[in-house]
């Protein structure tokens, strides 16, 4: 075991706000896009980072949930002033949240975690499974230079082309396809039942794409763990760098509870439990011990 402690939180202030819901809409089956007023978070957050979201003044559900940045919107004069997150209704928290409407308060703190890398590439392939689609919209926008994020502004326009490989159970669970297409993303879909696109796994779509590709490619992935493990293996087979954004359950999001640990391979080759909220959620796929 090695013992590196990495945390630059002191240099990276977290803002905590109580804010109003600006828009709350169903964008796919059981899947909601929540938009809140948050000018500072809208300016500072970069693709791959996340927030903790909690129902204001509520003891049950008590704990916040980690939700990734989905989109940033601008006001009438073009300033970034609101953020969106996406969630699937699954348990007590998401059920309660889905019943909140315009003007209701939520508490949000962030921006949290480390973003996806912004290295130049001919083609950036985004692989998403289910609600793992969330971090991909801003990532695609930044990579294609359609939008810039962060303060100071993070690099953008670093990929010549972006392809999204998106897997879901059925077509009705696919969220935001039109938003990706509107930003110039080449979208390829896989559904388990074949109700849209390739019938089967998204890893099969990825493999076909990598087989045909002879330019420089990078992969960014988010979804259920078995899928991310599979994507990591396919990427390794074709010698393509791959980053995964882990969705480990979190309680605080800020590194104080040690809930969200994942087995991460250290420099000496051994694994150690590392906090996903501080050292991730984005990791190189080959560092994760699945």
């Amino acid at each position: 075991m090695t013992h590196t402690f990495t945390c630059d939180r002191a240099a990276n202030a977290v803002s905590f706000i109580s804010t109003e819901i600006l828009s709350h809409r169903l964008i796919a089956r059981d899947t909601w896009q929540l938009t809140v007023s948050a000018p500072e978070l809208a300016r500072r957050t970069v693709p791959g980072q996340f927030f903790m979201v909690r129902l204001a003044q509520c003891n049950d559900p008590l704990i916040g949930r980690a939700l990734a940045l989905y989109d940033v919107s601008r006001n009438a004069v073009g300033e970034r002033d609101a953020i969106s997150v996406v969630y699937v209704v699954k348990g007590k928290f998401t059920q309660s949240l889905s019943r909140r409407s315009l003007g209701d308060k939520v508490e949000i703190w962030g921006p949290l975690g480390n973003p996806f890398s912004t290295l130049a590439t001919d083609r950036l392939v985004l692989v998403a499974g289910g609600v793992g689609i969330t971090p991909m919209l801003t990532l695609a926008s930044a990579a294609l230079g359609k939008e810039s994020y962060g303060e100071p502004v993070a690099p953008s326009g670093y990929a010549k082309r972006v392809t999204l490989c998106y897997g879901a159970r059925t077509a009705e669970y696919l969220a935001g396809l039109d938003q990706f297409e509107a930003r110039g993303v080449d979208v390829r879909v896989a559904t388990e039942d074949g109700s849209m696109g390739h019938r089967g796994r998204v890893t099969e779509v990825l493999e076909e794409l990598l087989q045909q590709s002879n330019n420089s490619v990078r992969v960014a992935c988010c979804g259920p763990e078995p899928m991310m493990e599979g994507v990591g293996k396919v990427a390794a087979k074709y010698g393509v760098p791959c980053e995964v954004s882990l969705e480990t359950p979190m309680a605080c999001g800020i590194g104080i509870c040690f809930t969200c640990v994942a087995k991460i391979r250290q420099e000496d080759g051994e694994w150690d439990y590392r906090r996903t909220c501080l050292e991730g959620p984005v990791f190189p796929a080959d560092k994760v011990v699945w």
């Binding site: 075991m1 013992h3 402690f5 003891n59 049950d60 559900p61 008590l62 704990i63 007590k92 928290f93 480990t248 359950p249 309680a251 509870c257 040690f258 809930t259 969200c260 640990v261 994942a262 150690d272 439990y273």
Partner: peptide
């Protein structure tokens, strides 16, 4: 040093949090 317990390490319950982190420390 203790690696701590395997995940899941915490579970939310009604108005509470159940934890078994396992004194993860170096």
């Amino acid at each position: 040093a203790r690696p701590g317990n395997a995940p899941w390490r915490t579970v939310e319950t009604s108005a509470g949090l159940l934890n078994a982190i396992g004194l993860d420390n170096d």
